[in-house]
Structures are given as structure tokens and as C-alpha cells.
Nucleic acid binder design. Structure first.
Lengths: 253, 253
DNA sequence: CGAGCCGTTGAACCAGTTCAAAGACCGTGG
DNA sequence: CCACGGTCTTTGAACTGGTTCAACGGCTCG
């Protein structure tokens, strides 16, 4: 279970939004010069965190919003006795802390899976975003609705899919997300342990291991190191009974 | 499982937003005259649906958004073979169809639990809302973030709580929601069957029945008719290990 | 009065958990 | 260089929380 301390480091400003490497990804929408200018001054700095570091803590009242610039993280909640449920994964281009910014305090925590760099935005400027940049306000709502849609699918998995189906779903999901964030050359690895898979799917570690083995025996994927390689994307989708993520231009801040 | 057909009926305009009965509830935020005027012309009519009727269908491309004026409904998804997962319940003041409006097509369905009346909004006017009414745009984002927060908690339940804890959680959750929507005089009943409980919690009908019996034996609640009566709200919260819904002024459209 | 829906209960079963142990692969310090 | 401890994965075996199957009783509504 999580043991990392919040060893975050504020770092010097590095990446100007105008040259943000994420903008060139095909899946992100284009920004107007005006939008770009606003986002640029909305951004107040960058932050980096090591693998295992806790970026946001449940109950915390944060003055910031973040967008992931590079690396992987995950959102989770704990029960009083320590049982953990991972809600979703956070990849480059994803926004975190919106829920906390709008509702006062975070209702979940976020931990880094790899070393991560984040763009930092001032919560206090969020009002101005809504007042002066309708298109960005729309994007924020879109992002929140998108997250809702993903959570719906996760809930369907955990509630109604069998262990094998769930696992196939999760592997597909992560593979697609990685692909759309430009992280995978197809074979690429997702940096998670089997414990993460278990905590995402509501399964025990042991049964997760045995289920992954079954998927490997069927030549659908292969577990290696700390992650997995996809062998048969379509087979996984079919097994999960899942349509896949919807594509199309995606906003980000 | 769901059998109702979409027997929706457009009805004559009835409730002017200025006299909306929901506005007087303590939990909803106040509107300025300007906001009220916009919402008033954003609303294009009302619609009513009978118990069992399907209000929105997964895959559908809807030209409307809805707010529930009265009655109960629920959001759900189906797997190809018919397994059903209920994602959340929809009560007076709740918005539905936002996800579909923003992302093109609905990724879930909505069915009425009681007879329901809905306010109808034109999706085409959503752009104007963002451009001219920042405060309402903010509210929409808030609403989406709130839904996300609720889904997180559901996912935690289904993934990591035991059947008894889950059931206690759901009962508490519905009780609180009903209370905040002004629907309950404390003893009031939630209009759902045990099949709905099962499909919300990812349990079988039989085991749901046995679990509800345990809660009743412990004098925490009582099942009656088509719903339940809460006997010991705090006992349920404690059993679930849940903090309860956060209060405070809540926006609605 | 019959058909459906809803709730209830018992009994057999099994998907997934828990317990236990061991092997692979690090990085670290002696 | 090797020994050591920590993290991660793997596997077998016993167990159990929850499922499935089956049947029945009560209620409502046409």
C-alpha cells in the first residue's frame, strides 16, 4: 500500500504553454492565441513529484489545480481500515484537483506512479476563466463530464463484470489512454503493479495475479516488469464487452 | 429488468422558473434576477414520464438537457448480455443529459422510478449560457464535479465495501439525498425495489434480500412496500464507514 | 380469478478471498 | 564482491461471501 511521503518539489518554470509538447498530439484540440495567452498567465509554475509521492490528499484544501505534463499518477480513496479503491489514472494532459477547487476540499488522493511533472494553476484565477473565456469554461465542463463517463464505465466493470472481463477492460482502457496521450509505441508498458490492478478492480492481489495469468495464457497480453504489454487489443475489447474510448478532439487546459 | 417503453409526453408549460418550488429549498443557492431570466428562456417546456418509462437511452443523441422537477429516476448502463449496473439516482433539482449534450451521445440510460416531471432545456442554447452567464457555467461545472464525487464514493462501495457495508451506505445515501431534496419527512420511503438495490451495489437479488434482512434485524432500517424506512441513520453511517454527503449551498439550473 | 411483480427462504455451489510460502529482482551498505 | 532486505510476482490449498437454482406466498390490477 502507499508509503510515499509528499516529497513534492517546486521547480523553476520550464515549459511555456505556447510550446507545450502536448499541444501537438492529434487528440487535443487547437487553441486560439487568446486562449493560449490566458492559459499561459493562468499557469503559475511547475511541480515535480517522484514515484510514490502523494500529490494531493483527501480532505486537503488546495490552492491549486494541476495538469499533468509528463508521467503517470492515480486517484484513489481509502476506507477507515485501509482498504483502497483506485478510481482512475491520470496521464499527460489530464487535469487534477478540479473537484477540490470547486467543492472546497479534496474527496480523494492522488499519488504518482512514475516521476511526474505538473503544471500549476491558481485556483483564485478560476473565476476569471469562467468570466472571460467561455470556451475554456466549456472545456472544463467537458473534462468533468468525460471523467464522469469513465467512472460510469469503471463502475459497470466493478459492479457487473467478472474478474476476467474486468481485467481485460482495465488493460484495454489503460492501453487506449496511453496511446491517446502519445505514450505508447504500441508495445509500451503501463507502470503499475498487480496491486494497483487489484485495487482498481475490487479484487484481491492473489486473484488478480491468477486472472492476469489467464489473459496471458490466452495470448491477449503479457505481464512484464511492472506493467503489461498488449498482444491482442481487439480480443481484450471483445472479452470485456467494451466499446472503447470515444475519440475526437479533446480539450485541455 | 427494465421493460418500460419511452412513453414520454410533452406537456404544456406549467411552472415558471420564477416560481420554481425547488428554489425555496434551503440547500439550493439563490439566483440573481438576471440569471433567473436567462434560465427562464433557456427552458423550452416540460415533459412528464410514468414509472418505468425510459427518459434517455444509451447511444442516443439528444437535443435536450433536463432538470428533474418532481419524482425519482435512475441512471444505468447495460452489458451486451443484459447485466445492469445502476450508476446513480436522480432527484428533484438534478440535471440529466449533460454528458450527452457535451459529448455527442449518451453513454448511459435514464429510467423513471416514479412519475416524473422534467424541465426541458435546449442544448443549442448551451453555448450562450457559457458566453453570457459565467456564474451558470460555473454551476454546470460544479454539478459535474459533484456527480464525479458521488461516483467515486459508489465505486469505493462496490469495489471495497462488504455487502452489509455497501447496503448501509446506499440506504444512507438515498436517505440523505431525499432529505436534501425536500422529499422526506424523515420516515419517508424511497421508491425502489430490491432489484434496484442489487443492481446499484453489484450484488445478486437474493443476497441483497438477505443483507437487507440483516440490517432490519439490527434495527437500522425496515423494508416496506417498495422502499425502505430509516430507523437509525447514524448506525448506518457508522456501519458503512461513510462521512455522509457534504452540505452547503448547491447550484441548480 | 389469473397473471405478474415483488419479497422471502432454503440448499447447493463456486468465484474469489485468505493464508502461507517461496522465488525473482532489485538497490544498498558492509 | 556478496549479503541483506525490500518490493513484486507466483503458486498451492483451505475457506467463505456471495451466487444460482428453485419454490412459494402476498399483493395488485385488469
Amino acid at each position: 500500500m502507499a508509503s510515499g511521503t509528499a516529497a513534492n518539489q517546486k521547480t523553476r518554470w520550464r515549459t511555456p504553454c505556447q510550446q507545450c509538447p502536448l499541444r501537438s498530439l492529434p487528440d487535443f484540440r487547437d487553441f486560439s492565441a487568446k486562449e493560449l495567452e490566458f492559459v499561459s498567465q493562468f499557469k503559475s509554475g511547475e511541480l515535480s513529484a517522484e514515484r510514490g509521492a502523494t500529490i494531493l490528499v483527501e480532505g486537503m484544501h488546495s490552492a491549486h489545480l494541476f495538469t499533468v505534463l509528463s508521467g503517470w499518477a492515480f486517484r484513489y480513496k481509502l476506507l477507515p481500515d485501509g482498504r483502497r479503491q483506485i478510481m482512475n489514472y491520470v496521464l499527460p494532459g489530464d487535469l487534477i484537483g478540479l473537484q477540490g477547487s470547486l467543492m472546497g476540499e479534496m474527496d480523494h488522493s492522488v499519488e504518482a506512479l512514475t516521476s511526474v511533472t505538473l503544471c500549476l494553476f491558481e485556483r483564485s484565477k478560476l473565476g476569471r476563466l469562467f468570466e472571460r473565456h467561455a470556451s475554456l469554461a466549456y472545456d472544463l465542463t467537458w473534462i468533468a463530464a468525460q471523467e464522469e463517463s469513465i467512472l460510469d464505465e469503471h463502475l459497470l466493470s466493478v459492479g457487473r463484470r467478472t474478474a476476467l472481463e474486468r481485467t481485460a477492460y482495465l488493460i484495454s482502457f489503460l492501453h487506449q489512454r496511453a496511446h491517446l496521450s502519445g505514450m505508447s509505441g504500441g508495445k509500451r508498458v503501463v507502470p503499475i503493479t498487480q496491486q494497483h490492478v487489484a485495487d482498481t478492480l475490487g479484487l484481491s492481489l492473489v486473484h488478480t495475479n491468477k486472472t492476469l495469468r489467464k489473459l496471458a495464457d490466452r495470448k491477449l497480453m503479457r505481464w512484464q516488469d511492472r506493467g503489461c504489454e498488449i498482444l491482442d487489443p481487439d480480443g481484450l475489447l471483445a472479452l470485456a464487452g467494451w466499446e472503447g474510448l470515444q475519440r475526437g478532439p479533446r480539450p485541455f487546459i
